[in-house]
Design a protein around this nucleic acid. Structure first.
Length: 211
DNA sequence: CGGGGGATTGTT
DNA sequence: ACAATCCCCCGA
């Protein structure tokens, strides 16, 4: 993967990362996943981005150069991985939401559990990280060095197979069309509207909280 | 320094 | 619809 391709805004890079392959090599073995679903987070300009309120210890990696991994813990349970994009000093990142395991299936299943069906091994951002064995220790990892977690281009995806939609689960700016996925692919996660999604017109919703 | 809440997941 | 479960970050 060329660093220059990543040195652009997340919303431009996100659809191009479909079909790319993330590989994690450990002593236990190697797992490779072909990316089938991404979401763009546009840094300080994006109310849903962790970088929206500026640089903090947690989100610092997003402000660095492209091609590194930004890993954060979600809901105290799961790890989620972003590929940092954009130029150094400007926060921008693409959340990897799902993929298809194309190598090291046995290892991936040993991490995810024996009952998990193939398409679900890396379906959802938390499951994706679990299948690949990505944790906090990989926060800031350089994906272009060829060691540990690496990113490669993979097969180009025909534009006709790419779909765009609103982001999953975010409460703010949930209608931004920043989610990209492969049409009809069973490894793509299901869409969920956040229960807190702020709606400009809530008149149709009978259940409004009295504050 | 206390507490609300989240880029989730799997089950009820 | 909800719990599990950590910790970031805002406001005081």
């Amino acid at each position: 993967m060329n660093a220059d391709r990543l040195a652009r805004p997340a919303e431009e890079v996100a659809p191009e990362l479909l079909g790319a392959v993330l590989t994690h090599e450990t002593a236990e073995g190697t797992v490779s996943v072909l990316v089938t679903e991404t979401e763009a987070y546009s840094g300080t300009a994006d109310p849903a981005s962790h970088a929206y309120r500026g640089r903090t210890p947690r989100n610092a990696v997003m402000f660095g150069p492209a091609g590194h991994l930004y890993v954060y813990r979600s809901h105290g349970l799961h790890w989620c991985a972003n590929i940092v994009t954009g130029t150094d000093g400007v926060a921008s990142a693409v959340l990897i939401r799902a993929g298809r395991v194309i190598g090291g299936e046995d290892l991936a299943r040993s991490r995810r559990g024996p009952k998990v069906e193939d398409p679900r091994l890396a379906r959802g951002p938390g499951n994706f990280c679990q299948a690949l064995g990505i944790t906090a220790e990989h926060n800031g990892a350089d994906l272009l060095t060829g060691a540990g977690v690496t990113l490669s281009g993979g097969e180009p995806v025909p534009a006709a197979r790419i779909r765009v939609g609103p982001r999953v689960g975010v409460s703010r700016a949930h209608d931004w069309q920043h989610r990209f996925y492969l049409a009809g692919d069973p490894t793509v996660s299901a869409y969920r509207l956040s229960p807190r999604a702020e709606s400009p017109d809530r008149a149709r919703s009978p259940r409004r909280r009295a504050t």
